[in-house]
Design a protein around this nucleic acid. Structure first.
Length: 913
RNA sequence: GGACCCUUAGCUCAGUUGGUUAGAGCGUUUCCUUGACAUGGAAGAGGUCACUGGUUCGAGUCCAGUAGGGUCCACCA
C-alpha cells in the first residue's frame, strides 16, 4: 500500500481517476429488471459554450445527486448533451464569417452556410462537456445527445407533425416581437423589458374641421417616426372632452398629408397624457387591435432590419429607426406640429439575446396552442411534480394561467427546418386555415413530398426551445421504439430530478412538462407521462457586489483556474457550502479555498491513520466491523459513533430535502470537529495501550470508511484516492460501486455484533471537552499556554473524580500537562470551576493576586448576568405553570449549576492572598 | 399594478416543527513549528438577529406593518 503524502495534490489524482472511471464504464446507466432508477437529464448547455460558474454549481448539484443515488444502489443515469442554440450559434458563425471572409450568410446560401455552422460546431463544440469531466461529472457519455443529431431531429420534427395533425399548430399573420438584429421573430419569453431613457413628444394633430374653439388634438408619443404609418387617432368613447369628435378627422402631421379618422376605443386611458392615442396598427400591439376593431388599414413602414421604407416618405425613407426618430422630430418642429419635447423614461422591450429594442411587427409565423395546459397545472398541484423550493410552483402556475400561444417559427437557418412544404406557385401570404389542412396545397411529413419538384419547403426553422422541450424523452430514444428499447426508456422515464435555474422555468421547465404529458407514453397514467418528479432550482452565482456573473462584465472567474488552484473537489465543496436551497449565491473564493483546506485535512487524517499502526482488513464493512471489540468501546467511541450516525441521518434528510449546504456543513463539522479535533486527539493516548490499539484503529477505519462514502458525491476524486490508499477497495474497484449504509442499517449491523451506541456518552464527552477547554483557557490566562510541564490539581467529588480518572492520560495530553492529580483541599493557585470540579493550575511561578482577583471577578460578573436572567424566568409564575416539564427542568438545573459555580468562584476569590 | 425573495459578526453565509449563553468559513488579536495536517493547533475579541408592533410563559424563528436591497410577471401611448 502506497504511503500517503504530506499534502493533497489534486492534479496528481484527478485525471488519473477520471480516466479509470471512464475506462471501467462506471457511469453507464444500466438498470437491472426491477432495479430502482435515478435519472437526470442535463440542462443542455449551448454547444459552443464554455464553462462558467453557473454551470459549475448546476452540474455539481446534479453530480452529487447522481453519485449519491449510485451509492444507494440505484440504477443511476445522467444523460449529457448540448443544445444547438439557434440564434446564439448562428450569430456567432455569422460574425466569424463577416470577420474572416467579409461575407454574410446570404452570400453563401443556406446549404453552404449550414455546412460552415456544422464545421464550427465540430471544431468548437462540446468543449464544455470536456470541461465537465474536469469537474468530475459522472455523466453517461455514451448517451451524449445533441439537439441537431439525426435521431433527435427526428423527434423534433415528429413532435411538430403530431401537434399539427392534432390541430395545435396554425399559421397566421400576427403581431410578433421582431428582432431587427437577428432578423427573426421571438417569443414573448425572449423579450426583456428595460426602462429606457428617451423623449416624449407632444404634438398637434390639426382637425380637418375645427370644432368650436378646438382646432387640434394634442397627442403624446415616444415614436414620432411612426407617424407616417398612423391611420387614426383614438379617444375613450366616454371622454367628455372628445366624444363629440368621434367620426371627425385630423390631418396626419408627418408623411403623406391625409385625413385620419378619430375613433372611440376603450383601450385608450383617458387620464393618461392628453387622453388621445395615435393609432399605428403596424407598429404596436394595442394599436393593431384597435385597428382590427375599427377595420383600419395597416401601413407598415419598417423593413426587417428596422430601417424605414418608402412609405415613410422621402425624408425618412432608408433611415435607421433611431435616426429617423430625431429627424421626424425636427420635421415636426419645422412644421409647427411639435408642441414640446421632454425627456422621458419608459419600458422598452429588448431582444434578450441581441440586446436591441424589438419591433412589434406583423408577419406570418407558425403558432402553437400549448397542449396539456390543464394537466400541466394539475401534476404540480397534485405534487406528482415537486418543485424545490416549493414557491416556484406558484410562479409556474401563474404563467400557465395566463399562457399565450407560442410563436415557434424563427427566420433563421440553423435549426430544425419546419417540415412543411407548399405547393409551388401558391401564395403563402393568403393561406387560410382550411388551406393548411388541404394536402393539395400543404404537405406536412418527415420525409417530405414524393414529388419534391412540385413543392417548396418552408424556410423557417423552429425555436430552439421547441426542440429542447422534448429533452427528457428525446434523449431516451423517443419516438423510435427500437431506440427507446436500446436506451431503456421504460426504466429511465420519467426522470427523477431536474436541476436547473429558475430563469428558464417558462422557457424550458413548463414546456417540458407539457411536452412530456403530450408525447411520452401516450395513453399511460399521468404519473408515467410526466418528464420528472422533482425540479430543483439552484440559485444564480453572483459576484461579491451581487451582480450576475457575465462575460461582458468580466466578473466571472474561470472555473478551470479555480480547479487548478483548489482542485475540483475543493471547488465543488466550497461552492455547495454557500449554495442554499433556491437562494442566489454570492461567490466567495475564500470558501473554495476552505474546501481545499478541508480536503487537505481529510488527506492528513488518513495519513495519520496510516502512520498510527498497521493497516488491517478494510476489505468490506463487515470486515471492519469485525475488528471492533465491543469490550473496548469507551465513551469517546460511543460519542464518535453516535455523531457518525447523526451525520448519516442528517445527510439522508438533506438529500430528501435538497439541502446541500446543510449536508456539507454537517460533513465538515463531523470530520473536522468530532473526528479530528477530539477523537483522533484522545485516541493518541489510547494508541499507546497495546490492548486497545487494534480496536481504536478499527473504529477509525470504520469512521473514515463511512465518511468517504458520504463525502464521495461531493468530492469524488480525493475520496476515490483515499479509498484505495486505505485498502477499502478490495472487493469493489471504485467507491461508487460500493453501497452506502443508512444510519438505521448501520445501527442494525452494530446490534448484530452486540454493539449498542450509548447516547449518554456524548454528554459525558462534552463535559471532558469543556474541562479541557477551561484548562487550556487557564493556561492561556497565566501565559503558559505553550508549556507542557504544568501540573493541574482537581478538587472534585467522588463521582466527578471517577469520570476524570478514567481519562487522565487523554486529558493530560490534550491540555498539555505533565500531571493531573486529585486534591482534597483548596490550593492557593489560579483556578477555574468546571463541571467536574475546581481545577488548580501550578505553573511553578508566583501568582499576582491582583490579576487573579480581577480575573475571578470578571468571571463572576459574567455569570451573574446569566443567573439573573434564569432566576427571573423561573420566578415567573406563567413560565413555571405553562412551560413543558423538560424545559422547566432544564432551567432549574441550569440555575443550580450556575449558582454552584458562582459560589465556588466566590470562595476562590476570597481565598486569593 | 400583481407575485415572490432577502436583511443574523468586518466580509460571505448556516440557524429544519418557537425553548439553556445565536453558529461556521474568511478576516482579526495573542500564543504554538510538540512526529497527521502552518492548507495546521490552542485561546480570545467581535452580534440591540433591519425597524415597529402583535401572538406567546418564551420570538432570530410565527403574524401584521415599515424601511432598504433583489427577482419574476404585466405595462399607458
Amino acid at each position: 500500500m502506497a504511503e500517503i503524502t504530506k499534502s493533497y495534490e489534486p492534479k496528481d489524482v484527478e485525471d488519473k481517476w477520471y480516466a479509470a472511471w471512464q475506462e471501467a464504464k462506471c457511469f453507464a446507466g444500466h438498470a437491472a429488471p426491477g432495479q430502482e432508477t435515478y435519472t437526470i437529464v442535463i440542462p443542455p448547455p449551448n454547444v459552443t459554450g464554455i464553462l462558467h460558474m453557473g454551470h459549475v454549481l448546476n452540474n455539481t448539484l446534479q453530480d452529487v445527486l447522481i453519485r449519491r443515488a449510485r451509492l444507494e444502489g440505484k440504477a443511476a443515469c445522467w444523460i449529457p448533451g448540448t443544445d444547438h442554440a439557434g440564434i446564439a450559434t448562428q450569430t456567432m458563425v455569422e460574425k466569424h464569417l463577416k470577420k474572416t471572409e467579409g461575407k454574410g450568410r446570404r452570400d453563401l446560401g443556406r446549404e453552404e452556410f449550414l455546412k460552415r455552422v456544422w464545421t464550427w460546431r465540430d471544431e468548437k463544440g462540446d468543449h464544455i462537456l470536456k470541461q465537465l469531466r474536469q469537474l468530475g461529472c459522472s455523466c453517461d457519455w455514451d448517451r451524449t445527445a445533441f439537439t441537431m443529431d439525426a435521431d433527435y431531429s427526428r423527434a423534433v420534427l415528429t413532435s411538430f407533425i403530431k401537434l399539427f395533425d392534432g390541430g395545435h399548430i396554425y399559421r397566421g399573420k400576427r403581431m410578433v416581437n421582431w428582432c431587427p438584429a437577428s432578423l427573426t421573430a421571438l417569443s414573448d419569453e425572449e423579450v426583456e423589458m428595460r426602462p429606457t431613457k428617451g423623449f416624449i413628444y407632444k404634438l398637434r394633430y390639426e382637425l380637418v374641421e375645427p370644432s368650436g374653439e378646438l382646432t387640434h388634438l394634442t397627442v403624446e408619443t415616444t415614436r414620432p417616426e411612426t407617424i407616417p404609418a398612423d391611420v387614426a387617432l383614438a379617444v375613450h368613447p366616454d371622454d367628455e372632452r372628445y366624444k363629440h369628435l368621434i367620426g371627425k378627422s385630423v390631418w396626419r402631421p408627418l408623411g403623406e398629408r391625409a385625413p385620419l379618422p378619430i375613433v372611440g376605443d376603450i383601450a385608450v386611458d383617458p387620464v393618461f397624457a392628453a387622453g388621445v392615442l395615435k393609432v399605428t396598427p403596424a407598429h404596436d400591439k394595442v394599436d393593431f387591435e384597435i385597428g382590427q376593431r375599427h377595420k383600419l388599414p395597416v401601413i407598415d413602414l419598417l423593413n426587417a432590419d428596422a430601417t424605414l421604407n418608402a412609405l415613410a416618405g422621402p425624408e425618412l425613407a432608408g433611415m435607421e429607426r433611431f435616426a429617423a426618430r430625431k429627424k421626424s422630430a425636427e420635421l415636426l418642429r419645422e412644421s409647427g406640429s411639435l408642441i414640446e419635447e421632454k425627456p422621458y423614461e419608459n419600458n422598452v422591450g429588448y431582444s434578450q439575446r441581441a440586446g436591441v429594442p424589438i419591433e412589434p411587427r406583423l408577419t406570418q409565423q407558425w403558432w402553437l396552442r400549448y397542449p396539456r395546459v390543464e394537466e400541466a397545472k394539475q401534476v404540480v398541484r397534485d405534487g406528482l411534480i415537486q418543485m424545490h423550493p416549493e414557491r416556484w410552483s406558484k410562479v409556474y402556475l401563474n404563467w400557465l394561467e395566463n399562457i399565450q400561444d407560442w410563436c415557434i417559427s424563427r427566420q433563421l437557418w440553423w435549426g430544425h427546418r419546419i417540415p412543411v412544404w407548399y405547393a409551388k406557385g401558391i401564395d403563402r401570404e393568403k393561406l387560410t386555415e382550411a388551406d393548411l389542412r388541404d394536402p393539395k396545397k400543404i404537405h406536412v411529413s418527415l420525409a417530405g413530398p414524393a414529388d419534391p419538384e412540385n413543392w417548396d419547403q418552408e424556410d423557417d426553422v423552429l425555436d430552439t426551445w421547441a426542440s429542447s422541450w422534448l429533452w427528457p424523452f428525446g434523449t431516451l430514444g423517443w419516438p423510435d421504439a427500437e431506440s427507446q428499447a436500446k436506451a431503456n426508456f421504460d426504466a429511465f422515464y420519467p426522470t427523477t430530478t431536474l436541476a436547473t435555474g429558475a430563469d428558464i422555468i417558462f422557457f424550458w421547465v413548463a414546456r417540458m412538462i407539457m411536452a412530456g404529458l403530450e408525447f411520452a407514453r401516450p395513453g399511460a397514467p399521468v404519473e408515467q407521462r410526466i418528464p420528472f418528479k422533482h425540479v430543483y432550482f439552484n440559485g444564480i452565482v453572483r459576484d461579491k457586489q451581487g451582480r450576475k456573473m457575465s462575460k461582458t462584465l468580466g466578473n466571472s472567474p474561470d472555473p478551470l483556474d479555480l480547479i487548478t488552484a483548489y482542485g475540483a473537489d475543493g471547488l465543488r465543496f466550497g461552492l455547495l457550502q454557500i449554495a442554499p436551497l433556491g437562494q442566489d449565491v454570492k461567490f466567495d473564493e475564500s470558501r473554495v479555498e476552505a474546501g481545499k483546506h478541508f480536503c487537505n485535512k481529510l488527506w492528513n487524517a488518513c495519513r495519520f491513520r496510516q502512520m498510527s499502526g498497521e493497516m488491517a482488513d478494510n476489505s468490506s464493512l463487515g470486515a471492519v466491523l469485525g475488528r471492533i471489540d465491543p469490550a473496548h468501546l469507551d465513551d469517546d467511541d460511543h460519542a464518535l459513533l453516535g455523531a457518525l450516525l447523526d451525520t448519516m441521518s442528517t445527510l439522508e434528510k438533506s438529500f430528501a430535502g435538497f439541502e446541500f449546504a446543510g449536508a456539507t456543513q454537517r460533513l465538515y463539522s463531523f470530520f473536522w470537529n468530532d473526528f479530528c479535533d477530539w477523537y483522533v486527539e484522545v485516541a493518541k493516548a489510547r494508541l499507546q495501550e497495546p490492548a486497545a490499539k487494534a480496536h481504536v484503529l478499527a473504529v477509525q477505519d470504520l469512521v473514515i470508511r463511512e465518511f468517504l462514502l458520504m463525502f464521495e458525491p461531493f468530492a469524488p476524486f480525493i475520496t476515490e484516492e483515499l479509498w484505495h490508499l486505505l485498502g477499502y477497495d478490495a472487493e469493489k474497484s471504485f467507491v461508487q460501486e460500493t453501497r452506502i449504509e443508512t444510519a438505521a442499517g448501520l445501527v442494525a449491523l452494530f446490534a448484530k455484533r452486540g454493539v449498542t451506541v450509548d447516547a449518554a456518552a456524548t454528554g459525558r464527552v462534552e463535559q471532558l471537552k469543556q474541562f479541557s477547554t477551561l484548562a487550556r483557557e487557564l493556561k492561556a490566562d497565566q501565559s503558559v499556554a505553550q508549556k507542557r510541564d504544568v501540573k493541574f490539581f482537581a478538587l472534585a467529588g467522588q463521582p466527578e473524580w471517577l469520570a476524570l480518572e478514567k481519562n487522565l492520560s487523554k486529558l493530560a495530553r490534550l491540555v498539555g500537562a505533565a500531571e493531573i492529580s486529585r486534591t482534597t483541599e483548596k490550593l492557593s493557585l489560579p483556578a477555574t470551576v468546571t463541571s467536574l470540579g475546581t481545577l488548580f493550575l501550578d505553573t511553578g511561578v508566583k501568582v499576582d493576586p491582583a490579576a487573579e482577583r480581577a480575573r475571578l471577578t470578571k468571571e463572576i460578573q459574567a455569570l451573574n448576568k446569566h443567573i439573573t436572567g434564569t432566576e427571573a424566568r423561573l420566578s415567573n409564575e406563567a413560565f413555571t405553570s405553562k412551560a413543558p416539564p423538560a424545559v422547566l427542568e432544564g432551567a432549574r438545573k441550569q440555575l443550580a449549576d450556575q449558582q454552584a459555580k458562582r459560589a465556588e468562584l466566590e470562595r476562590l476569590l476570597a481565598a486569593v492572598k
